[in-house]
Design a protein around this nucleic acid. Structure first.
Length: 300
DNA sequence: AAGATTACCTGAAGGC
DNA sequence: TGCCTTCAGGTAATCT
């Protein structure tokens, strides 16, 4: 399940392998993962060069430019003032010099960079970057590829809060402290800060010793600070370990991310708490299965 | 009006 | 070639 660390690994792999390459082909096997029509998507992107890969929370944003041979990679002044895709009154996009593609992998989206890969029925898109095939595979078809107008503040994600790795404690505290929902719901709320999903929320709560049902009002500023730091550190640690899903872009051997064995409570119901030995419990919070130690994480 | 619930999908797992 | 239910969770839409 791609959360911030998995998406960050995708972003890094895309930069390493595709940045500077031209998109020369796009095969659409299932158009449902595209927000716009296959025709418009091709018309907008084909022939352009991938200039920049940006991640915000769990979103990827790819910027393409006309990319003529020998052209500079750095943005031109026109791009800096926001000249990119423009929508007319009918909402249609014009394919200008630059184009922006927003991607969300949702639950089961995977992007492969494998030269010898035979697409199965779950492969919905096949990109061709000057001979390098890139596959989009998504078992549950929740993922979306969306052409957007502006690479800095796309309307589609304007409601998303600051990235969890970039926001500072004071700002995070201000966005969270007046809320009365369980702390787990607030950590999952992408409008407060973007990037945490169910796995890393459970891990952060355990590391900070906070029960998922606790209200922020029942936590001191120091306790919230410890939770904030736990969340950031677990995200950074997971990034370094390649994430928890098996997305793999740094080599061609399909090796999975190896953070799974570092998880302390997530999907470990009934197993002993690594800190005190108490059995890990499971409860539904915010409609999500939540794993915690009843002894280390006391309900306030 | 924030918080809770459901829809979207498919496959795995478990009960019988 | 077993059928059926439940569960998995990110986000948007829809409830209360």
């Amino acid at each position: 399940m791609p959360e911030l660390p998995e998406v960050e690994n995708v972003a890094r792999a895309l930069r390493l392998n595709l940045q500077g390459r031209r998109l020369t082909g796009l095969k659409v096997r299932f158009g449902g993962v595209l927000s716009q029509s296959p025709r418009l998507t091709r018309q907008t992107l084909l022939g352009k060069r991938l200039d920049r890969v940006y991640r915000h929370g769990k979103y990827l944003l790819l910027t393409f430019s006309a990319g003529e041979n020998g052209a500079e990679r750095s943005p031109t002044p026109r791009q800096l003032v926001g000249d990119s895709l423009a929508a007319d009154s009918s909402g249609r996009y014009h394919a200008g010099e630059t184009a922006h593609l927003m991607i969300h992998l949702r639950m089961t989206g995977q992007i492969f960079i494998l030269e010898d890969y035979r697409p199965d029925k779950h492969v919905h898109l096949v990109f061709d970057f000057e001979g390098l095939p890139v596959h989009y595979r998504d078992i549950r078809k929740f993922g979306r590829f969306t052409l957007v107008e502006d690479d800095r503040a796309p309307d589609a994600i304007r409601h998303i809060g600051p990235d969890m790795l970039e926001i500072g404690f004071a700002a995070w505290f201000d966005r969270l402290v007046e809320r009365r929902a369980p702390i787990k719901s607030l950590l999952l709320d992408q409008g407060i800060a973007a990037g945490l999903g169910n796995i890393y929320v459970d891990e952060a709560l355990f590391r900070a010793g906070v029960h998922p049902l606790t209200s922020p009002a029942d936590l001191s500023r120091d306790e919230l600070k410890a939770l904030f730091r736990a969340a950031k550190s677990v995200l950074r640690l997971a990034i370094r370990h390649g994430g928890t899903t098996f997305l793999n872009f740094t080599n061609f051997h399909g090796q999975p991310g190896n953070f799974r064995r570092k998880l302390r409570v997530y999907q470990r119901t009934g197993e002993p708490c690594p800190r005190c030995g108490t059995e890990i419990a499971r409860a539904v919070v915010a409609g999500r299965s939540s794993h915690y130690c009843p002894s280390c994480q006391r309900e306030a």
